[in-house]
Amino acid sequence: MIYFKFPFDEKLYSTDENSSENHINFYSFDGLRQVDCSGKIVEINQDNFDKITISSNDLKEDNNKFTPETKDEYLNNLNEVIEVIKDNQLPKLVYSRRKIFTDFNQIALKESFKNLCSAYPNAFSYILINGENSWMGAFSEVLGKFNKQTHIFETMSLAGTLPVSESWSEKEIEEQKPVSSYIRDILKKYSETLDESETYDHISGNIKHLRTDFKIKIQPEDLDTLIQELHPTPAVCGIPKDFCKENIQKLEKYPRELYAGYIKIETEESIQYFVNLRCSKLYKNAVHLFVGGGITAQSNPEKEWIETELKSEAVLKNLVVS
C-alpha cells in the first residue's frame, strides 16, 4: 500500500493493486535492494481517502535491538570523519545517524501522513506500508525528471543546510559548489547544451538549502545510465563518490537501507526520481528517523548535531501518536 503527492501538487495518488503493472520502485542507498509497488498509478480523491483506514496493526514489531548513537558518540565519530576528510583532502563526505522514537502506544498513520503533506507542500510526500519495508517521508531533492515527449532531463544540486533565519556562511557555500560541479560534469557527457540556473535559497519547513537547477536534452536510451552515474550524489554521499561510499559503510554504525536511496515513479508523461531523504522507517512500537549532513574539513561537530536534530523534526513533529 502506498499513498503519495508530487511537489506543488494537491492531488493524492495511490496504486490500483488489481493491476499487474509496476510504476513505482524504491532503491536502497547501496543499490543492492529494490522494493516494488505493484499496480497502476491512480488518483485518490480526498473524500475517498478520508474513508480509508491505514492501520498500524499492519506494521511489524521492531526487534532489531539497534542502539542509536548518543550525542557524545556522534561527536566522537564525526571527529573521526573529519580526520578522514582532511587526510584524503575530500571536498565533502555525508555522515548520517539513525534516531529512534518509541514514546507512544500507537501511531495514527493517516493523520501523520496528512500532516506531512500539509507541512511540506513543495515536497514529494509518501507513506509506504509494506510489512518489513514500511516507510514515510517528505523531501524536495529530485535526482532527475525526464519528459517522455520532449526528452528534457532536469535535476538539481541541493546542499548546505541552515535554519531559515540564519545567513549563509562560507562552509555552506563551499559545501554546495562541488555538488554542482559533480552534476555539471556528468550532464556534459550527455549533451553539449546545458541550462544552469543561478544558485538560490530552497526553503523546506524550518530549514533552508542552497539550490541550483540543471536542464538538458538527452537520448531516452541514456536515461538509466545517467541515473546510475548521478546516484548517489554528493548531497547524500560525498566526493569522490566511490571512495566516500566505501568509507560511509565503514564509519556509520548502521545500514542506510532505503534512506538516501531513490524512488522512481513512471507516469504516461514522465519518469521522476526522488532522493529518499527526511524519511523514517515505521514499526508498530518504534519510528526510526534517518538524518545526515554534509561534512567538510571546516565542519563543527556540535553544529552538525544540531542540524541533524532539526532535520529529524521534519517527520517527528508531524507524527500523531497516542
Results as ranks from 00 to 15, higher is better:
2 I>S: 07
8 F>G: 01
9 D>K: 14
15 T>E: 02
18 N>H: 09
24 I>C: 06
32 L>P: 00
37 C>T: 01
38 S>P: 02
39 G>K: 03
50 D>E: 05
51 K>S: 10
52 I>H: 02
58 D>F: 05
58 D>K: 09
60 K>H: 04
65 K>G: 10
66 F>H: 14
67 T>H: 15
71 K>P: 02
71 K>Q: 11
72 D>S: 14
74 Y>R: 03
77 N>G: 14
77 N>S: 15
78 L>Y: 12
83 E>V: 13
87 D>M: 11
88 N>D: 13
89 Q>A: 14
91 P>C: 08
92 K>I: 12
94 V>D: 13
99 K>S: 12
103 D>S: 12
103 D>L: 09
103 D>Y: 06
106 Q>Y: 13
111 E>I: 10
114 K>N: 12
115 N>Y: 02
116 L>T: 00
118 S>F: 09
121 P>F: 02
122 N>A: 10
123 A>R: 00
126 Y>K: 09
128 L>M: 11
137 G>K: 13
138 A>V: 04
140 S>K: 01
143 L>I: 09
145 K>W: 07
146 F>H: 10
148 K>R: 12
150 T>E: 11
151 H>G: 04
151 H>T: 09
155 T>L: 10
157 S>M: 07
167 S>H: 09
169 S>I: 04
170 E>N: 11
179 V>H: 06
179 V>K: 07
182 Y>N: 08
189 K>Y: 14
196 E>M: 13
204 S>C: 09
209 H>M: 03
209 H>E: 08
209 H>D: 04
210 L>F: 07
210 L>S: 01
214 F>H: 03
215 K>E: 07
221 E>P: 00
230 L>V: 05
231 H>Y: 01
232 P>W: 10
232 P>M: 12
232 P>Q: 04
235 A>D: 10
238 G>K: 00
255 P>Y: 08
257 E>C: 08
262 Y>C: 04
263 I>M: 03
265 I>E: 11
271 I>L: 02
277 L>G: 03
279 C>K: 03
282 L>F: 01
283 Y>K: 07
287 V>H: 00
292 G>W: 01
292 G>I: 03
296 T>Q: 09
296 T>F: 15
296 T>Y: 02
299 S>Y: 12
309 E>M: 13
315 V>R: 02
321 V>R: 06
